[in-house]
Amino acid sequence: MITHFQWKPLFEDEKLPGWRISFYYKKQHFQGIYHPEGRIEWTGSHPAEEEEKNISAMIHELMLYHVYES
C-alpha cells in the first residue's frame, strides 16, 4: 500500500502538464515524475521490477483522483 503520497506541479505554470510525486511503499521512499500520458520517470530509488506495474497502477489511480478530477 502506498502511504504519504504527495504531488506538485512540475512547472511553475500549472497549466503545463507534469508532476513531481513522492510516496512510501513498504517503508521505502520513492520519487518520480508523473508524465501526462501516465508514464512514470523514477528519480532516485526504483521499485523492484515485479512490483513496478502494481505501484504504477496505484499511482495512476491517485493522480486521476487528485489531479484530473479536481
Rank of each mutant, 00 (worst) to 15 (best):
I2F: 07
I2Y: 07
T3L: 12
H4G: 12
H4P: 04
Q6E: 07
Q6Y: 13
K8F: 06
L10H: 01
L10T: 08
L10N: 01
L10G: 06
F11R: 11
F11W: 08
F11E: 11
E12N: 14
E14I: 15
K15C: 08
L16V: 08
L16T: 09
G18L: 06
W19M: 08
R20Y: 09
I21P: 10
I21C: 12
I21Q: 07
S22D: 12
S22R: 11
K27P: 07
Q28S: 14
H29C: 02
H29G: 00
Q31K: 11
Q31H: 12
G32E: 02
G32F: 00
Y34A: 00
Y34C: 02
H35Y: 11
H35V: 03
P36F: 13
E37R: 15
E37V: 10
E37T: 05
E37D: 11
G38T: 02
G38I: 01
R39W: 06
I40N: 00
E41F: 03
E41D: 09
E41A: 09
W42N: 01
G44R: 00
H46P: 04
H46C: 09
H46E: 00
P47G: 00
E49G: 08
E49H: 14
E50I: 12
E51I: 01
E52N: 08
K53T: 14
N54D: 15
N54T: 15
N54K: 15
N54G: 13
I55P: 03
I55S: 05
I55F: 10
S56K: 03
A57Q: 08
A57L: 04
A57H: 10
M58Q: 05
M58T: 00
I59N: 02
H60N: 12
H60E: 05
H60F: 01
H60I: 04
E61T: 12
E61I: 05
E61C: 12
L62G: 04
M63D: 01
M63H: 02
L64I: 02
L64N: 13
L64V: 02
Y65A: 09
H66M: 07
H66A: 05
V67F: 04
Y68R: 11
E69L: 11
E69I: 15
